Computed example of a mutant assay.
Amino acid sequence: MTHLEPGAVDVRTLADHPLTDAGSSALRMVAPGAVTAGRFGLVEYRLAPHSRGADPHVHSTFSESFYVVAGELTLYAGDRWQPCRAGDFALAHERGVHGFRNDSDEPATFLILFTPGIAREEFFAEMAELRRSGRRPSPEEMTAFYARHDQVMVDV
């Protein structure tokens, strides 16, 4: 179901949103914006031990919320990297500098909620394809890629 009428209920199973391998991580588009009528997007993310997730960056048109399900995620928030454990929640408002990585010896599983539900799945699909292909885009190509997906990298 791609468009919900008022009062409708949409139930999705794991088969509806398979896990996508993205190198040292894996992600699952649990509820893309197309399913939620653009209200939100929800991603389940699994990050391997000692892995980079996303360097500090900002978005101008959407917020990201992080909820740690298992393990420990290191989140850049405000002006520093800090550990977040299972049950911790963090919200990065529009234009809020944030990033994430796994500094621990165990995998980290967390949810990312995008509000509103922009087509963020396209960003993750393109990133996974870049990793699979082994192609190394130029800095100019990466800047254009990020700009297309409302992501500006920030030096901290």
Rank of each mutant, 00 (worst) to 15 (best):
E121C: 07
A108R: 03
A34G: 06
T61F: 06
G41V: 01
F100H: 13
D55K: 12
R120W: 10
P107W: 01
L27Y: 15
F123P: 01
A125S: 09
I118M: 10
A128L: 07
V30H: 00
L75Q: 02
A128Y: 08
D103K: 00
R28N: 09
S60Q: 12
W81L: 11
A54L: 15
R101Y: 00
H93A: 15
R80D: 08
F89E: 00
M127Y: 11
G87A: 09
Y76H: 11
H93G: 15
A54C: 13
R46V: 07
P116A: 12
D55A: 15
D105L: 12
R80A: 14
P32W: 03
S60Y: 07
T115A: 15
Y67M: 08
L27V: 04
R95P: 00
A37V: 10
P56R: 03
T36P: 09
S60H: 12
F40I: 08
Y67I: 10
E64T: 09
H50W: 05
V35C: 12
Q82Y: 02
Y67H: 15
R85F: 04
H59E: 00
E64M: 06
E94S: 11
E94D: 08
V68A: 06
V43A: 06
E126P: 06
C84H: 08
H93W: 08
S63N: 01
E122P: 02
A128Q: 11
Y76R: 03
V35F: 12
E72T: 08
F114G: 04
L111E: 08
E44T: 03
P56C: 07
L113H: 03
R52M: 13
Y76V: 05
H93C: 13
L73Y: 04
A26N: 01
F124S: 04
P49Y: 07
T109M: 03
P32C: 13
T36K: 01
F100Y: 13
A125E: 14
E122Y: 07
F62M: 13
R120L: 13
G87E: 03
R95H: 14
P83A: 11
A77M: 09
M127S: 10
H59C: 09
E122T: 15
A90Y: 02
P32H: 07
F110K: 05
T109S: 13
G38K: 09
A128K: 05
P32E: 09
Q82S: 13
L91Y: 11
L113E: 10
G71R: 10
R80N: 05
D105S: 12
G87F: 04
I112A: 11
D55Y: 04
A128V: 05
Y45Q: 12
V30D: 06
R120Y: 12
V69G: 02
L47D: 10
P83C: 10
E64I: 07
E72G: 00
